[in-house]
């Protein structure tokens, strides 16, 4: 790396699993080069650094912020806005920040349903909660008011919340891609703002399997067949999302006989990844008979949202399942009662 005055780097996590923070370490010993080039001013996962210190910084003082995770709470929203203001370059790091990823699948439900499932119906991780206690943004205690972040109805992506300069795709991003991005930033060789850093073609480009014209009579789930190692998985009836997913991962999944699930997100210009996948697959179903087509889909794709929007529901054109009621449902519920 070139000898330059040290820059300031921040890394932050919002609604994510934490894998992105660990992925940063995939760049290996090169992390030392990063440390040489930057002062890390905030990295909750691995380093010290206080929000109040960031608040005190001048706008644009941070050179680069790698932000992973989607925006689910008021606190995450605040941090996104804060880091946006303080950073010259804000990178949506990984699928959660870029497209919502797995946390975004909760947009198939609303806050009430999510809370019901966590606090009421109980699960392995929730103890008995017979009083139906739920997190409240404000709780009055003798000592004063306690605050919890507000849990929003809908998970948003980073760019649905603040302006984003670059996107680094992947769940999590690959070490080499991270390194490419960091190098580009340090050397000032950045693509035009708004770009996704990575290849602009799809996984098929990196997949070594042989492909022919596609005609699919039946879709299989991965446990149903043992795929031929040399032939395109999609042609064998496995829903391989490689056709629609941005290259750059090296086609790792198909290489080990496992269909691509789409973690690298869409290609440039795609407005709705799931819709692309669906219209592509619908085009190659080998039947002209509406009933048979219906059957092929029903048998082969039991979970369309999970299959096609696993990573991108929050960033899709519809963003979420239609709200059955307004807001969190409470208002509508009382209204119905009153009338």
């Amino acid at each position: 790396m070139s000898e330059k005055p040290k820059g300031k780097l921040a890394l932050y996590w919002a609604a994510s699993c934490g894998g992105c923070d660990i992925a940063v370490l995939q760049i290996g010993a090169r992390i030392l080069d990063v440390a040489a080039a930057f002062d890390i001013v905030l990295w909750p996962c691995a380093a010290d650094g206080k929000v109040r210190d960031v608040e005190k910084m001048a706008d644009g003082e941070i050179d680069v912020c790698l932000f992973n995770g989607g925006i689910r709470t008021s606190e995450q929203e605040y941090m996104a806005q804060l880091l946006r203001r303080k950073s010259k370059v804000l990178v949506a790091f990984g699928s959660c920040a870029q497209e919502g990823c797995i946390p975004g699948l909760a947009n198939m439900n609303n806050r009430r349903e999510i809370f019901d499932s966590v606090y009421k119906e109980g699960s392995a991780t929730t103890p008995e909660n017979s009083d139906d206690v739920r997190p409240q943004p404000e709780t009055e205690m003798p000592e004063g008011t306690l605050h919890l972040p507000v849990f929003y109805d809908t998970l948003k992506t980073l760019n649905q919340t603040v302006e984003v300069d670059y996107y680094l795709p992947g769940c999590p991003p690959e070490g080499d891609m991270i390194w490419t991005a960091i190098t580009a930033i340090v050397e000032g060789k950045l693509p035009p703002p708004g770009s996704v850093i990575g290849a602009n073609t799809t996984v098929c480009d990196e997949c070594k399997r042989t492909r022919t014209e596609k005609k699919i009579k039946k879709f299989y789930r991965t446990w149903q067949i043992k795929p031929d190692p040399d032939i395109c998985l999609l042609e064998q009836g496995l829903i391989c999302c490689g056709i629609a997913t941005r290259a750059g991962c090296g086609g790792l999944c198909p290489e080990v006989n496992s269909p691509c699930i789409g973690c690298h997100g869409p290609n440039d210009g795609v407005q709705d990844y799931g819709a692309r996948m669906m219209s592509a697959l619908a085009s190659v179903i080998d039947s002209d008979d509406p009933e048979e087509i219906e059957q092929i889909i029903r048998d082969g794709v039991p979970d369309p949202v999970g299959s096609f929007y696993r990573f991108s529901l929050a960033s899709s054109l519809l963003r979420r399942k239609k709200r059955s009621t307004n807001g969190n449902g409470a208002a509508a519920a009382t209204k119905t009662k009153a009338s």
Binding site: N200, T201, T202, V203, C204, D205, R211, T212, E213, K214, K215, L234, G242, I243, A247, N267, D268, A280, S283, V284
Partner: peptide, 26 residues
């Protein structure tokens, strides 16, 4: 061609047979 990964989804869809596949370039 830069964007095309040669997945061949489109290859037999064209009602006018206007799509060809370049094996060499993929």
């Amino acid at each position: 061609e830069e964007h095309c990964s040669g997945c061949r989804v489109c290859n037999n869809l064209c009602p006018f047979e206007a799509i060809e596949y370049d094996e060499e370039k993929g």
